[in-house]
Amino acid sequence: MPKPSLKDAILDAGLKVMFRTGYHGTSVRDVTTAAGAPQGSFTNHFRSKEAFASEVLDRYFEITKGLVAEALEDASLTPRARLKRYLDIITGRLEADGYGRGCLIGDLSLEAAGSSEMLRTRLAEIFAEWRMPFAACIGEAQRSGEIDSEFEPEELADFLLASWQGAILRMKVDRTPKALERFKSIAFKTVFKEPT
């Protein structure tokens, strides 16, 4: 009878460890210890730490896409309300973590994009894919007259995601939701305000 694969346990542990110690601060030993797996099992499943981090990032992005769908596909809300709903869902998750843990996509963008071309490329792909449902929702809001049409939906989606990442970074420093709430208040009274 073949041994069960420890890959999922290693990826789950890696997600938790990387959130706590970052990409550069995470060692193979840290991950395998957290997974209760022998170190050799890491190299059986991953050709490098970069490849491992890329799979952890993909796992995290799948969770993120689920949250995006939960908010942006809610047909009971207007498109503008769906955008707010996404930010509120994320705020709730950040609150549950005591405002000390942010977004792994943003964290790895800061920490690893400058030292790993493989991770930088994967992060660029993630941001391009992540932007798409936001651009679609913003476009719908523009067509219905909920949001001004001065900027292209893709530009506004990029602005939303990039600015929100900055608010999350500030939140981690302050350990309070003030930066998140300030961003939501200003963004929806300026860029995403209803036309008068």
Rank of each mutant, 00 (worst) to 15 (best):
G145W: 07
S149W: 05
K3P: 09
E117T: 13
S109M: 13
K193F: 02
F61Q: 06
E73Q: 15
F183Q: 13
K172P: 08
F42E: 00
K3E: 15
C137V: 11
A35F: 03
D12T: 11
V191H: 03
G106I: 03
R122Y: 05
K16R: 15
A162R: 14
Y23Q: 11
I147V: 15
G139F: 05
H45F: 09
R122T: 03
G98K: 04
P195Q: 09
I138P: 00
F183V: 14
R122A: 01
T176Y: 11
Y86A: 06
S54P: 00
Q39H: 05
C137G: 01
P79D: 13
P133E: 02
D8K: 15
L180M: 05
A37Q: 04
E152R: 07
F46A: 01
S5G: 12
Y86D: 08
G102E: 02
S149Y: 01
A9D: 14
D74Y: 06
E155C: 06
L94A: 02
A35H: 05
F192W: 03
F52R: 00
K84M: 15
P79E: 11
G14V: 00
E55Q: 15
L67G: 12
G145Y: 08
T33P: 04
L108S: 01
A75K: 14
L160T: 10
V56K: 01
E152S: 06
S116M: 10
F192T: 06
D30K: 05
T121K: 14
T196H: 12
T26E: 12
